[in-house]
Write a protein that binds this DNA or RNA. Structure first.
Length: 365
DNA sequence: GTGGCAGCTCGTACCACAAATGGAG
DNA sequence: TTCTCCATTTGTGGTACGAGCTGCC
């Protein structure tokens, strides 16, 4: 793909960006401002359009995801892609199947797409290209969450493809539960440190959390995709229903849910039922109070919490009892199922026990 | 465009038994 | 109140199997 040389600074040399930011020339553009007739990156978009009230009203659209060099005009629901008129015509005239893709026009979005943090605004020109690309993706994802809120309290100026209030309330739900969950997690960790051991000592089992350093990217990606599907699924409903999305989320996330040691639950003096990680316990606990107004600082904090939680998600299975795991691994199996131990194996065990303890089994008759 | 088939992926039930749990005495 | 006994429940991993999806004819 030919890269347009717009900036004279040469900041785009050596990258694969189709079009670089007209302002900083050091990052790929993500939005097109119609008022300024300029292609801007996330950081510059935030900085320029947050400068004053007039600038904040500039209408802008995302850049075409195909050519990345023209403003997107249509959103293909089948491909979930924003396309410019040229790419839309090319792609959707290729075959009959593509022609059936449902596309909706993308209206311009007033206001700033991004809410940069202080660190981002200060260090936005110092990150490497790769880091910036990754950060860009996270920015867009986080911004996609942020974009959805205004429609809840004011006139919904979003595309209508996503009903912002619903999704943002979902985010609020997630964050509410995550905060409660984190509170429980912290409490649990403190108790672990307090007791000095993760499990009440019976001389047998001990809790052994599996610390797999390998991040299961495909699982995360899969879950993330399913998560996004949940949102779209909900947004397609005319009537808002928590049950729909929540049941989906549970079915996805509870599979690899982290299990809390039983002893911990019984040992904690303040009783609570810790839900599976990622689940939403709507049917117990105090009613959730939805904030009606969110300041930019609040929203930024929520996005940061969302990112942090996204980074620290765990998908690996947690072993609660190491002895049971060790025993299960050594047990005889038939087609994967546990099988009864033969008499010979039982005798071997008894012999080994006699050697260890020095005592035999006395016949009862 | 529709139906049938093969191949693939994914989730889950199944098994035995030691350990954990909780009630009764 | 504390301890012991005993019945019940829980948790553990590898494999088979069914459901669902995709691609091809």
């Amino acid at each position: 793909m030919m890269k347009e040389e717009i900036c004279d600074a040469g900041g785009d040399v050596g990258n694969n960006w189709a079009r670089v930011c007209d302002t900083c020339c050091s990052a790929p553009c993500t939005v097109y401002c119609r008022a300024d007739s300029a292609y801007l990156c996330a950081g510059c978009d935030a900085r320029v359009h947050a400068a004053n009230r007039v600038a904040s009203r500039h209408e802008h659209v995302r850049v075409c995801e195909a050519c990345e060099s023209a403003p997107a005009a249509f959103l293909c629901k089948a491909d979930a892609a924003s396309l410019c008129t040229a790419c839309d015509a090319d792609i959707h005239s290729a075959n009959s199947l593509a022609r059936r893709h449902q596309r909706v026009p993308i209206p311009p979005i007033p206001g700033c797409l991004y809410v940069p943090s202080a660190a981002e605004t200060e260090d936005s020109f110092m990150v490497t290209e790769i880091d910036e690309t990754i950060a860009e993706e996270e920015e867009e994802e986080a911004a996609s969450w942020l974009l959805l809120n205004p429609g809840k309290n004011s006139t919904n100026q979003n595309t209508g493809f996503l009903f912002g209030g619903e999704v943002d309330e979902y985010l609020d739900l997630l964050e509410y539960n995550s905060s409660v969950e984190n509170q429980f997690t912290d409490q649990y960790n403190q108790l672990q440190q307090h007791y000095g051991a993760p499990h009440k000592s019976y001389g047998g089992d001990s809790v052994v959390p599996i610390q797999s350093t390998d991040a299961k990217d495909h699982l995360q990606q899969k879950q993330h995709q399913s998560f996004q599907f949940d949102l779209d699924y909900d947004s397609s409903k005319t009537a808002y229903s928590y049950n729909g999305s929540i049941s989906h989320s549970i079915s996805v996330s509870s599979v690899d849910g982290e299990v809390v040691p039983e002893s911990t639950m019984s040992d904690i003096p303040t009783p609570h039922t810790r839900p599976f990680k990622g689940t939403i316990d709507l049917f117990s606990g105090p009613p959730i109070q939805m904030p009606s107004q969110l300041t930019p600082m609040d929203r930024e904090a929520r996005v940061l919490r969302y990112r942090e939680k996204k980074k620290t998600r765990k998908f690996e299975k947690t072993i609660r009892y190491a002895s049971r795991k060790a025993y299960a691994e050594t047990r005889p199996r038939i087609k994967g199922r546990f099988a009864k131990r033969s008499d010979a194996e039982v005798e071997v065990d008894q012999m080994s026990l006699m050697r260890e303890t020095g005592y035999g089994i006395v016949p009862s008759f």
